[in-house]
Design a protein around this nucleic acid. Structure first.
Length: 575
DNA sequence: GCCGTTTTCGGCCCGACTGTTTTCAGTCG
């Protein structure tokens, strides 16, 4: 297994941090950060490219001759001589200081070099002892901020799922909308781009009187702490530790502000460069020709100014969307309203909380044409899975229910466990009788990559398999993706006509955006499913659709946008 | 360190808030 892109990116970022502490050319630092990002999001294994032909690496934007050499070295050895040299030269402890809020490269160096602080605990002690107060560049106020953040364990970036963030952000947004004089309010940032997790929330408000909005914001009951508070900008921390940033814009600049604060940073930089080429300055207040603002009210005007069609927020990651927009090749992204059914759900047959009929009625309410009930097979005890006899009974029950239902068809399905050796957990005769067979990993997550890959490939080659459900089995923030060769799995899926799932559970979102995009581009049909274990979870489809949009997938690329007849044809074709 | 619709050299996105800097550096987004 080649070194994961994320690991190469991590090493590049560490080099960037150390260069910054060294006070290196900021543009050089930026080059490393930029390369780290593009490597991390590259759809193909960068280490595999390096092994094949290192020169090919320079085709990745932001990677030139030097970085190609460094990346090749990292891919081969897991580290680079440059990194080791920098580590030796840097004052011990400086890197660790960087992760503390309000400590950047300059202060990190002061803390490590002058105060000889090596660890976070050391910093906490020094701050308590008042040793930071008299240092140039620090001071009493910075000291107390550092102390407060360290005591609250805020040193590490704390990301929460987008779905969880919505529960905090949406009520706060409603509160701001009710402030007198506010004519619009939106959540921007990574939340609007539909990243699977968010580290903070950005809110934009359109109003003439910024002070009034800032006041309402900083005094909201949701605010546990005010981080900063200015004329048009403020930041608070919620009781759960989540940071919320607020910006207020007037009518003439709101669209520009929304574009700017939706990001991503990399996307914005690319757009500004396009502006520069047209002798335009683009900032969060508008598009400027000299001193004159020529656009800014609507977000679309920013794109107009640089000759591009409006680009959906989910695509704004500088992953080729600007080139696609320029070429008129932006995909027509799938929408929630395109979804005609759900292909992965559970009932009281295994670990679901509702009966098949309750689930079916709820799906009917959502306007769906079909719902697949895909209860677990018996291998994993905690899921209370059914054996072959159990499924036989359930199929008969579904036939009966379908006779009663007028608008919706319940599909007879199963979520079958993939054993350690790649065999499946139900008999072939049972699988053959089902309308839809999902396979997934629920055990032995840590097999060696070779073995894990073999296991997955064997399962996907099984004649009765329709969908590879939550393929990597990751749980965001809790369980790493199973280590198998995803490229090989995608190829196998394609060869055997197996679809791959985007599981919409906020904790899973599996496949992730980059993998789903790769699978889609290779021609693998995808599904978006809620994996609902109870009625309310059936409405979680939106999180999966957003993920698919981040993967550039159109309606055509998602199997369950098909009407029932076409879907069944698709399922039969694969068998 | 990267890169080219002015450029193979000389640029590289841009601004708000904070603190202590008495004119701006550091940090952050």
């Amino acid at each position: 297994m080649p070194l994961p892109n994320a690991e190469i990116a991590r090493v590049l970022r560490e080099i960037a941090d150390l260069l910054e502490i060294q006070n290196a050319n900021p543009f050089r630092v930026r080059a490393y950060r930029n390369a780290a990002r593009t490597v991390e999001e590259h759809p193909e294994s960068v280490a595999a490219i390096a092994a094949r032909d290192p020169d090919e690496l320079t085709e990745i934007p932001g990677v030139g001759k030097d970085l190609a050499t460094t990346i090749t070295e990292i891919a081969k050895k897991g580290t680079a001589k440059q990194l080791r040299d920098l580590q030796r030269e840097a004052p011990a402890g400086a890197l660790e200081m960087l992760s503390v809020p309000n400590v950047g490269p300059k202060r990190a160096r002061i803390l490590a070099e002058r105060l000889k602080i090596r660890t976070r605990e050391g910093l906490l002690k020094a701050a308590r002892a008042g040793k930071l107060a008299d240092e140039p560049g620090l001071g009493a106020v910075i000291q107390s901020k550092i102390l407060r953040d360290l005591e609250a364990h805020r040193e590490e970036e704390h990301r929460i799922s987008r779905a969880a963030a919505a529960q905090y952000a949406e009520p706060l947004l409603e509160r701001l909308r009710r402030v007198r004089g506010v004519t619009a309010a939106d959540i921007a940032g990574s939340f609007r781009r539909a990243r699977e997790s968010v580290g903070d929330i950005d809110m934009l408000v359109r109003a003439d009187d910024g002070a009034k909005v800032v006041d309402a914001f900083t005094s909201a009951p949701e605010a546990a702490d005010v981080i900063e508070s200015g004329a048009t900008k403020a930041a608070i921390r919620l009781h759960n530790g989540l940071r919320v940033d607020l910006r207020v814009f007037d009518r003439d600049s709101y669209g520009a502000g929304l574009h700017y604060f939706t990001g991503s940073k990399a996307h914005n930089i690319a757009i500004r460069k396009l502006g520069q080429a047209r002798k335009l300055k683009i900032n969060e207040y508008g598009v400027w020709k000299g001193e004159k603002r020529v656009a800014g009210r609507e977000e679309k005007e920013i794109f107009d100014a640089v000759g591009l069609p409006w680009i959906p927020p989910e695509m704004r990651e500088d992953r080729g969307e600007i080139e696609a927009a320029r070429a008129g090749k932006l995909p027509d992204l799938v929408e929630l309203a395109d979804i005609r059914g759900d292909l992965h759900s559970h009932s009281t047959g295994s670990d679901g909380r509702n009966t098949i009929e309750e689930m079916a009625r709820a799906a009917e309410e959502l306007g769906y044409e079909y719902l697949a009930i895909t209860d677990h097979s018996p291998a994993v005890r905690v899921t209370n899975g059914m054996d072959d006899a159990g499924f036989k009974k359930q199929m008969a029950a579904i036939d009966k229910l379908n006779a009663k239902l007028s608008k919706l068809t319940v599909l007879k399905g199963a979520e079958v466990d993939i054993h350690k050796d790649g065999t499946l957990d139900l008999k072939d005769a049972t699988l053959a009788a089902l309308d839809i067979v999902l396979v997934s990993i629920h055990s032995y997550f840590d097999l060696p990559p070779k073995e894990q890959t073999a296991r997955v490939l064997k399962a996907l080659s099984h004649a009765h398999v329709d969908v590879f459900a939550h393929p990597t089995a990751r749980l965001i923030g809790r369980r790493r993706p199973a280590a198998f060769d995803l490229e090989a799995a995608i190829k196998a899926a394609l060869d055997h006509g197996v679809m791959m799932e985007i599981d919409a559970q906020p904790e899973r979102l599996d496949l992730d955006d980059v993998s789903a995009r790769t699978a889609h581009e290779r021609g693998v049909m995808l599904t978006i499913d809620t994996d609902a274990h109870a009625l309310p979870e059936l409405t979680g489809m939106r999180w999966g659709v957003d993920q698919a949009r981040r993967a550039w997938v159109s309606k055509k690329g998602i199997a369950n946008t098909r009407p029932l007849g076409r879907l069944l044809k698709l399922l039969h074709a694969a068998r």
